[in-house]
Amino acid sequence: MATKTKSSAQRDTPKWEMVIDLDRCTGCQACVIACQAENNIPINEESAFHEHRAIQWIRIERYWEGEFPDVKARFLPLLCQQCDNAPCEPVCPVYATYHNEEGLNVQVYNRCVGTRYCGNNCPYHARLFNYWEPVWPEDLRNQLNPDVTVRTRGVMEKCTFCIQRIRRATRGGEAVEDGALQPACVQSCPTSALVFGNANDPDAKVTRLKNDERHFRVMEHLGTDPSVTYLKQVDVDG
């Protein structure tokens, strides 16, 4: 079997990845709200939770283990895993989602016709559909981020790794210093549980951490090859 080697051109192109250390995460929701603010995500009204249609590009899932007094609650920040072998991509009939050269699973809003096939095929439930036209009270529209499109009704959306920040940082072609470019969730995280960077840079923190002995990927057995690596929470026995 031929061994794949990366050409220098491939190495020069960044490969954006994220590492999430579950031993640092406290489930505080700072990342969730930072993402809402940065990406013009509609306000999730009470009804959105009732209908399980809340739009959160990153959400904190909480899983119980056991019952009082031997109980644990574990937190999992879950966002689009930017899979290298993404199940959402081949099912889109209009090529609204594709994989770009930087490892991002890209969603083109004005191509999307809302079949929701991609959402059905995403095992992480990371793709979210706009069932309604997003509405903000007029005054609150002043906060909207001018760098990010407001998605309309009938369009699928999801985490972009804050592509607008990536574009701004890399425009002009200069190399980005490790850690200088951060998606909104990473930037806010009070415990620094989230780390973002160029995995093609062997010296990047994200490259070092993704090879930590605690690394795993969510539902790795599905073969989706995610670009988000998690570090296991540590349980001290005894």
Binding site: L22, E61, R62, Y63, W64, E65, R74, L76, R214, F216, V218, M219, Y230, K232, Q233, V234, D235, V236, D237, G238
Partner: peptide, 19 residues
């Protein structure tokens, strides 16, 4: 339903260490 970790099918992996 309450979201629970299913034994043997855990979504969140844990590293166990001894004190």
């Amino acid at each position: 339903e309450l979201a629970v970790q299913l034994p043997g099918e855990e979504v969140i992996e844990v590293q166990h260490v001894s004190r």
